[in-house]
Design a protein around this nucleic acid. Sequence first.
DNA 1: CAGCGGTCG
DNA 2: ATGGTCGACCGCTGT
Length: 877
Amino acid sequence: MENKNRLLLIDGSSVAFRAFFALYHQIDRFVAPSGLHTNAIYGFHLMLTNLLERLQPTHVLIAFDAGKTTFRTEMFADYKGGRAKTPDEFREQLPFIKEMIEKLGLTHYELANYEADDIIGTLDKLAEVPDVAFDVTIVTGDKDLIQLVDSNTTVEISKKGVGEFEAWTPEVLQEKMGLSTAQFVDLKALMGDNSDNYPGVTKVGEKTALNLLHEWGSLDNLYENVDSLKKSKMKENLIADREMAYLSKTLATINVTSPIEIGLDDTIYHDAKQDELLKFYDEMGFVQFRAKLLENSAENIFDSSVKKSEIEFEVVSAENEISVKKDDFFYLEIFGENYHKEEIVGFAWGNADKIFVSKDLTVLSKMDFPENTYDFKKNRVLLNRLGRELPLVSFDSMLAKYLLSTTEDNKISTIARLFASENLASDDEVYGKGVKRALPEDDVFFAHLARKIRVLVETKEKLLTGLSENEQLPLLTEMELPLAEVLAKMEIAGISAKQETLEEIGAENEERLSALTAEIYELAGEEFNINSPKQLGVILFEKLELPHGKKTKTGYSTAVDVLENLAATAPIVAKILEYRQVAKVQSTYVQGLIPEIAADGKIHTRYVQDLTQTGRLSSVAPNLQNIPVRLEEGRKIRKAFVPSADSVLLSSDYSQIELRVLAHIAQDPNLIEAFKEDQDIHTSTAMRVFGIEKAEDVTPNDRRNAKAVNFGISYGETDFGLARRLGIDRKEARKFIDMYFDRYPEVANYIEATIRDARDKGFVSTMFNRRRKLPEINSRNFNIRNGAERQAINAPIQGSAGDILKIAMINLNRALLAGNFQTKMLLQVHDEIILDVPNAELDEIKALVKSTMEDAVELSVPLKVEENTGMTWYEAK
DNA sequence: CAGCGGTCG
DNA sequence: ATGGTCGACCGCTGT
């Protein structure tokens, strides 16, 4: 297999046509400076780069149809007749596609009187010479070429979009249609081809044709035995259309001996013609491709010899005098992500005139730090480990970029791609990936660090301008930056976790797991891996023949809702559910958390501040925002989290913050009233939606239904989803939702207005101007568009709630400092804060936290905070 | 590395 | 008719 030649054959005509329609909806966005439409050119390029990267071919040929008339039209005048005229916007792009192919270092070819298919078939045949050993991949939009699949040839049919292909091999053909390669043409002979406009046999479509071939094996054999068919309309049609069937077969058959004037050697994949390609991209207005090409990287698929622009820097060590200007940028480098553990491997600072780099950590203990950085929180934690307190900066490029757009990551190389004049190689490219990751030679390493500084310096103004245009500057300077300082403090503090407690739980779990395993094997009658959904599916739904519900892409679903329906009738299922519960706690929370306890007996999570689409935080290594609470089984884990000496844990959480935010944003009078009067919101909704007069007449079931509706609304839930979740009739669910909107009309208006606004502007905003872009909101794909609409409804609600807690944390941090308290914030879990409170401060702190959180912002409804204390996190809930 | 499953708000 | 609830992280399996 190794060193094999790989030939990629592309049906250029059909792929270009696909590309044209894939991006047709955005045709007005794809216009070159000259006015030429470029959607097909652009899409073709995308498909091409995708294929080249994935398949790594050594030889490539892109074949095109030569013109309207071919040998096939001579045989059958109507061949490809009746087709709609190709759109002018498409035809005008074809010459440019061919030009682009040449500049990319690839070959295209067309031949008078023959179709692209025939060129491809002929080359495919040439590549079959035994000792040349080619792997051939054919890419097309047209199923006809499937007739070429064999052990060396795969045919990929382009599906939706520009990146999706369906691979056909002899095995796939057998599996999907029950046909051999040779039978494929007979299929076309019988069923004809609508788009090529040859009819095959009257009234015979794919289904009938397949049945006939499965029975008779081939067209020839079918016609040899046609008389023995029992009398039917189909028999008459077969006999009457015999000639047309054979003509169709001829038309469908690809000519693999076309008189082409090129050979395999002409298709060798050369390097791109860089300068010409750049010029071409400029003409087309392809900024992204241009940037990608300029990105001087090993990964660059065109050419790895792109010149990097020079970078100047000075290497500094402890003996040197250290010069830092206030408005310099600085940047600390570590290998890996976990700045609580990893060492600083280098750092840099500077401005547009002068950049300094160093590896000497003693420099860090002496230098003053400037006011601009990238990822303040990381720098604060790293320097804290060196015993230095990094003063708060005034600008953080990572946070600025995150606020501007959450669609991409916020790496410096990404910032460069979007905002700088020149791209920056990614860390993976410079340092290597996985086991190969290593510190490069000093000159390479320092140059990379210096380039990072150069990008940060160059892009600051653009980022600031962007924020200012969006009215997001306060979000950076008054929210994310001060928050970064608070989060750093929390991460550094960590939360004490008792390994013994986890081990005790672990030992218990192990015993239960082995007992459960034995019982499950007994009930199954054999041993298998209970953790494998695949093996489990076979046991439950094949061996034990339990009724299977939904299926997944890879087999039967064994998800909890499926199993719960079976638990009552099948004892093994109940045991499996119990096993799953224990196994989850054991692997993720016992075995997962123990190694995360640091030498100081604490767990130091990292809050990722620049990730979520809505503005929430996330927590990693470990995630302390999903410690079990719902089921007692897992909730025990919380017993391992304890306060420091002479202190307690205080947990303060906002009650119903998202619904309160919804009430405020939507300005719905009924919802506002309910919260103002401090009614139980689910009971209140039950009364309004179900028309119940007195609160005491609301049954637990009514309240449960109302609660489901309340939550579902802010997610944009449909009647189908609500019905499934509540186990009720879909019609009834519809009634609930309609009644809800009737009783809370402004909520209905909010949803409608938000979606309209999103369509209009392409993004939605929180109360504090945090944005979420929604590029899919105008998608023509029903599912994608609906998904974006639900995100549009939810993001301002979830995001505003997140913003409010961030404000509360900042204010609380200030209040704790001002009051000189020893109390420490430890954790944040989306709507709650967990604090370590010395007993002596408890009363005062409880009041302070509550008021700070409740007064974080003034809404049309009051914010309400509930508190719990305990000697473990388990008790403080 | 993707897919499944499960944990949280 | 379609598919049908938002936002996250992590462990295990199987290729």
